[in-house]
Design a protein around this nucleic acid. Structure first.
Lengths: 137, 137
DNA sequence: TTGCGTGCAAAGGTTTTGCATGGCA
DNA sequence: TGCCATGCAAAACCTTTGCACGCAA
């Protein structure tokens, strides 16, 4: 069933994201960061690889805010990202995994009272994290 | 202070969105819909106008799902859209304004317990609405 | 050796911008 | 009349795709 080859580029990209769990990167960023370490990956390959990793639920894709490009961030599969919500800081980019009961209760509430089935994977709370709020508004 | 002219195009675009509160439209959709009524608006003007309307909080911008283009939808200023959450159906596109206490309580919880300040304007719950769930999964 | 992966270049689509013209106030 | 708005065309981006070559297994 394993129809995929292990290549330098895929290892490189996955490692990069795994080593930078705190931030998200556009394809452009990714290539720039890799090139700092004298590593090169073709643009098309980068796009193809992040698509692959998104399908495998190893990366999360964030839509461009206004204009700009999509960004990607590592999400560990073991953290059960499919079952909790995500809080994304709009200032520093930090992604917080909120595994809290209150939030799941809300999802239930929305489903029962509003008849609306919430897609956890696509729903992100945007705002500002504790640290950024601390560092002067 | 009013540095803006009232033009046919702006009236037209705002009216269109106001008369179609239930759905969201890409620039391409918008121009197509208007042309059905023998109304024309240049593409550049359409982009410039929706940007303007977004700044004025009369439209809400939805980032493109995967590839594709951004879409825009009317949000009435009187409905206090800045203070409640939005549920967006990924099937039919309907935007539900959830003015419910449970949800505001959650925002408080997130702020108090997680130290994360939620930006209501940018946060959208994606999922599937009651009707679409009814019409066969 | 087989067939997937890569990289280049080209294509496709969306959004922005420059500039001359048009139109509101 | 003075500016802002419009529309066209061009440009700037972002992303996808075709194809020949490279490389893992």
């Amino acid at each position: 069933m394993e129809r995929q080859y292990k290549t330098r580029q895929r290892e490189l990209i996955l490692s990069f994201f795994r080593e930078h769990k705190e931030n998200c990167y556009s394809i452009r960023d990714l290539i720039a960061e890799l090139s700092k370490h004298a590593q090169t990956v073709g643009e098309a390959t980068a796009y193809r690889t992040v698509d692959l990793l998104c399908e495998q639920k190893l990366l999360k894709r964030f839509a461009p805010a206004g204009a700009g490009s999509a960004t990607f961030q590592y999400v560990s599969p073991e953290s059960a990202c499919l079952h909790h919500f995500h809080l994304k800081c709009q200032k520093c980019g930090k992604l917080i995994h909120a595994d809290c009961e209150e939030i799941s209760k809300l999802a239930e509430h929305i489903e029962k009272e509003h008849g609306f089935f919430v897609n956890h994977a696509d729903t992100v709370f945007y705002g500002e994290c504790a640290q950024c709020r601390g560092n002067g508004e």
